[in-house]
Amino acid sequence: PQVPQCKALYAYDAQDTDELSFNANDIIDIIKEDPSGWWTGRLRGKQGLFPNNYVTKI
């Protein structure tokens, strides 16, 4: 099955070790969508939390 993905609308710099940094237009694999607004994703071999208001699902 296809892994859900999202595209970064803005760059995000991780504020903690469990967060994921990314650049605008990066494509992130979505591991888990949480109602809190912090999703778990994977990018370039690293997994971490990121704010879903920085991305749009594709």
Rank of each mutant, 00 (worst) to 15 (best):
P1V: 15
P1S: 14
Q2W: 11
Q2T: 10
Q2D: 14
Q2Y: 05
Q2I: 09
Q5E: 04
C6R: 02
K7D: 00
K7W: 07
A8E: 03
L9P: 02
L9Y: 03
L9G: 03
L9M: 08
Y10P: 02
Y10I: 05
Y10D: 07
A11K: 14
A11C: 09
Y12V: 01
D13Q: 14
D13W: 05
D13C: 11
A14D: 02
A14P: 05
A14K: 09
Q15N: 15
Q15L: 09
Q15K: 09
D16T: 14
D16P: 02
D16A: 13
T17L: 08
D18H: 07
E19T: 11
L20V: 01
L20S: 01
L20W: 00
S21Q: 06
F22A: 01
F22K: 02
F22P: 01
F22Y: 03
N23P: 02
N23K: 14
N23R: 14
N23V: 13
A24Y: 04
A24L: 09
A24D: 04
A24E: 13
N25I: 01
D26T: 03
I27A: 04
I27F: 07
I27Q: 06
D29A: 08
I30G: 02
I30C: 05
I30Y: 00
I30H: 02
I30L: 12
K32A: 13
K32S: 14
E33H: 02
D34T: 11
D34A: 13
D34G: 11
D34R: 09
P35R: 11
S36K: 15
S36P: 01
S36Y: 06
S36Q: 14
G37C: 03
G37S: 03
G37Y: 02
W39M: 06
W39Y: 12
W39P: 04
W39L: 04
T40W: 13
G41D: 01
G41Q: 02
G41W: 00
R42N: 14
R42I: 05
L43E: 03
R44P: 04
R44F: 11
R44V: 09
R44K: 09
R44S: 12
R44E: 06
G45I: 03
G45P: 00
G45C: 06
K46L: 10
K46D: 06
Q47K: 14
Q47W: 11
G48L: 05
G48P: 01
L49I: 08
L49P: 03
L49K: 15
F50Y: 01
P51D: 11
N52P: 15
N52T: 12
N52D: 09
N53S: 07
N53V: 09
N53T: 07
V55Q: 00
V55C: 09
T56H: 15
T56Y: 09
T56K: 09
T56L: 08
K57H: 07
K57N: 10
I58N: 06
I58M: 14
